[in-house]
Structures are given as C-alpha cells and as structure tokens.
Write a protein that binds this DNA or RNA. Structure first.
Lengths: 185, 185
DNA sequence: TAGGTTGATGACACGTCATGTCATCACCCT
DNA sequence: AGGGTGATGACATGACGTGTCATCAACCTA
C-alpha cells in the first residue's frame, strides 16, 4: 500500500470537472478543487500547468497519434488521402466514443474566454503535428502549413455540426471536405 | 490644459513595448510599465483588459473593417472573389506599412505561450468577422464557417512567408490561394 | 461667476493564480 | 539495516486583476 491514495491526478480531474459543472470555471478556485480531492493546492500545480489545463488532458496524446499515422501511411498516397484516412481513425476511436464529454467540454469552453484561448492552442498544436507529418512526407513548408491548417479547420467545422446532429463525424468530415473543394474550385 | 498629461493609453503602450523589448514579456511587470509611463497600476487595467492585450491594440478595428468591406461588396461576387478583394485592401493598408512592427510582434509572440494564445484568439476573432460577413451575404452556416476559417488560414500562412521575404503580401496570398486550390482539386 | 456634474486618475484593499523551497516519510533496493 | 527515491505537505512569496472610494481639473449651466 502506498503512502497516499492512488490516482491523484485522476481524482483532481474528477473534482475539477464536478465543480466546474456545479459552479462554473471562473467561480471555482484551485483550493476548492484540491479540498474536494483531499490534497493541497501545491499538488494541483504539480500535475497540471494551470487551472485550464485540467480540462484538456484527453487531447494530450493526439498530436503524437497524428504524427505516427502520417509517417506510417504509404508514401504513394496523396496528401488529402493521408489526411482523410487518418481522420477516419481519429474520428472513430477518439471522438465518437466521447461525444457526450466533448459536448460538455464545449459548453465550458464557450463560457470562458481563457478556456477558449486554451482550446485554440490545442487546436494549433494539432495543426502543428499535422504540419510536421507533411514535412516528413516531403512537402515544402508552405504547402505543409497550408494543408495542415486546412485539415484542422475541416475537423473543427465538421465537429461543430457533428455535436448538434446524429450523423457520424467521419461522414460529416467528408461532406465538409467536398464542400470546400467545390467552393474553391 | 488637462489635469493629467494626454495620451495616457499611448504612453502605456509605448512603455510596455520598450520594456518587453528590453527584458522580455514575462519578466516585465505591470507596475514596471506604469512606473515608466508615470501612472499607477490600476490605470493600466482601465485601458487594457490584461497585460497581453496591450500588444494587440492595432488589430482592434480589423474585424469591423472586414465586416464593412464584405457587406459593401457587390452581391453578385463569388465568396472567394469577395475575400480576395477584401484582402487586397487589408494587406495594402494595414499590413504592408507596418511590416517591421509586425515582425517584432511575431518575435514577442513566439517567446511566450500566453501571447501565443492571445494571438490565436485575435485570429479567431477575425475568422468570426469573416464568417459573419458570409452569413450576411446569405451563405449557410457551415459554408460560412468553412470559408472564413480557410480565408484566415490563407492570410496567416501567407504572412509567415511574407515576413521573411521581399514580395508583396497580396501577391503571396494569391499564390497561396492557388496552391490550396490545386492541392484540394 | 458660482455651483454642480463629469470623467479620468490615484490610493488602497483584496482574492486568486502560480512558483520556489524545504521537510516529511512510505516504499524500494541492495 | 540503511540509504535513496519520489510524491506530497507546509509555507512563503510575488504577480495578476478587480472592487471601491476619494480627488480634482475641465466643462456645463444658470
């Protein structure tokens, strides 16, 4: 048996989510979170860089996942093919099963400017991972940045629609990609 | 003559830029800024919502400018035509004359995660203005969001290249748009 | 010109966030 | 048995951001 109860990080996350749901993000202090989790304030900041970060732990592995998928894809595949195939996996494994949680997170993010900024940063991190993947695949810098940003835009616009519909995310992504292609052509 | 020296806001901005350049953003405290400007800490926060905001005052009018241009464009013009025409004006009037300042701002933003987040928020605000413009022009929600985000992506990818080159921003934007079209088609 | 209003700033208190530092002590290893 | 390790507690500290009231030049308005 350990000196302290296990799962410190998860208990903090749990307490934070509960309190944010009960009172809102800004109204919840870090001491309140740690009190509920039975820990001290200092410990919270040992596990999360700041109060916002506790809401985005699930996305931590996504960039690495993206890079791996992009390097493993056949070298012959066209950029957009690689992206769409990768998105199919991400959509089915990481987004579809967590739809309710993502919806709840969206509401929280909408309620606070600071959270909105952090959300945008996560989005930018994802774009950067995709960009790296394209660079690895030999695209020039401009093209890699352009396609990466476009890809992330696609996902987020599609996700907005997905959260308010009953359709599969990947289907919406494909439609959105088609819409964009048509609009630019 | 007024009770206090005029241009409070501009003096604060000036002092902040100087100190950020001298010591970096994180190392500069708000009291240090107000001391240099000959004011009190409280006054700083009367003029700027937070320490970051002082770096982005120039972009404050851009969203309104975007919306105006988009409503004034002929109703017959295609979405991408409207955008590219608007971007010509923005590029020439707001970006080209401030190239050195924008370059300096980019370095600061790169040096601090908090500033990066704020920068992304400004970018999102611009995308939202464009989206509103498209909505006003009768596009459906998805299409408006998609094109707006794509437009902003275009500008930022192009700007990255522009800051390290001698070409005109608008020319780069056109090339970038063409690259995207080709890559998606 | 007297007197009231306005609006920007000063002065002060306060709560929260975030970090540095040292002590503690169950667990593990040898 | 004894030292090392690593997570947590305890405490201090400083910066950020806000609420509140006082101040007082400039501007009305009569």
């Amino acid at each position: 048996m350990s000196r302290w109860p296990p799962d410190t990080r998860e208990r903090l996350r749990q307490a934070a989510f509960e309190l944010f749901a009960e009172q809102g993000f800004a109204e919840t202090t870090v001491p309140a979170i740690t009190a509920r989790a039975g820990l001290t304030t200092r410990t919270f900041f040992r596990h999360f860089a700041d109060k916002r970060e506790v809401l985005f732990t699930d996305d931590a592995e996504v960039p690495a996942m993206v890079e791996r998928m992009m390097t493993e894809a056949p070298a012959s595949a066209s950029p957009m093919t690689v992206v769409l195939e990768g998105l199919r996996t991400v959509a089915e494994t990481r987004f579809e099963p967590r739809k309710a949680a993502i919806r709840q997170l969206r509401e929280l993010v909408r309620s606070d400017d600071g959270l909105r900024e952090r959300d945008l940063r996560k989005r930018a991190a994802m774009a950067d991972a995709v960009r790296q993947g394209f660079l690895t695949r030999g695209l020039d810098g401009t093209r890699a940045a352009l396609l990466a940003e476009t890809c992330v835009t696609l996902v987020y616009v599609a996700m907005t629609e997905w959260l308010d519909s009953d359709r599969a995310l990947y289907d919406i992504i494909r439609d959105t990609a088609e819409t964009l292609r048509a609009e630019l052509g």
